[in-house]
């Protein structure tokens, strides 16, 4: 069953909608790219630094020294063989590597959370900017219609330079000017023309308007 108010056409204002589609895609693409590039280089920079030649050299030396510290503190009457010593130093190194990776992951997670918050803030700001281009004119038109409803036909509107639907303000102003002229003319006729002629003039002017009551 077809719903009564189902949209038949989604692109009702093609250039306008496509332009906004482009804006949103561009915005998301830029922010995602910043996030991805940032975390990619952040991670790799940490990994590359942690496993650079000099760091590995330092780690191997430290592993040997820490193992020697343990030997000094817990001396044994029998000196341990070269293979056992290598095994223990390798064990220390692998422990160290696990710590380094864990640290990098922790730092990366923190970085991603921080970046996520920053991106949400930027996307929020971008969305407000974009929607303001549409919401601003709608708000202004709504306000002006209320003025006209209250009888102020002298109202005119002007949108900001980068607001959407610049044509709408011109058409609105034309409508307001037309109503202003009609009502003004009728008021002038009542004021300045003799009553017998005024009725005719009013009738002529009112005939321009089509109303529900005929």
């Amino acid at each position: 069953m077809k719903r009564k108010n189902q949209r038949k056409k989604f692109l009702i204002h093609k250039p306008f909608q496509l332009r906004y589609l482009l804006y949103i895609i561009l915005l998301l693409a830029i922010f995602s790219a910043v996030g991805m590039i940032g975390s990619y280089y952040g991670n790799w920079a940490s990994v590359i630094k942690a496993f650079s030649d000099s760091e590995i050299r330092n780690a191997v030396t430290t592993a040997a020294q820490l193992h020697e510290y343990e030997e000094v503190r817990r001396p044994s009457p029998k000196s341990e063989g070269v293979s056992l010593r290598s095994f223990r130093e390798t064990e220390l190194l692998s422990q160290r590597d696990r710590e380094v990776i864990r640290n990098i992951m922790t730092q990366t997670n923190r970085r991603i959370v921080a970046l996520g918050i920053l991106l949400i803030l930027l996307i929020g700001w971008g969305s407000i900017y974009l929607t303001h281009k549409v919401a601003g004119p709608v708000f202004r038109v709504n306000q002006s219609l209320r003025e006209i409803h209250n009888g102020n036909l002298a109202i005119r509107i002007r949108f900001r330079k980068f607001d959407e639907s610049q044509g709408l303000s011109a058409r609105f102003n034309e409508m307001a000017a037309s109503l202003d002229r009609s009502v003004g003319g009728m008021k002038r006729a009542l004021r300045e023309i003799p009553p017998s002629q005024a009725t005719e003039a009013l009738q002529k002017e009112l005939d321009r308007f089509r109303t529900t009551s005929g």
């Binding site: 430290t62 710590e99 640290n103």
Partner: peptide, 14 residues
Amino acid sequence: HFLDPKTGNRAWGS
């Protein structure tokens, strides 16, 4: 015994 000087985390499986 050994700590990461920047974070104070345990270092080198000490």
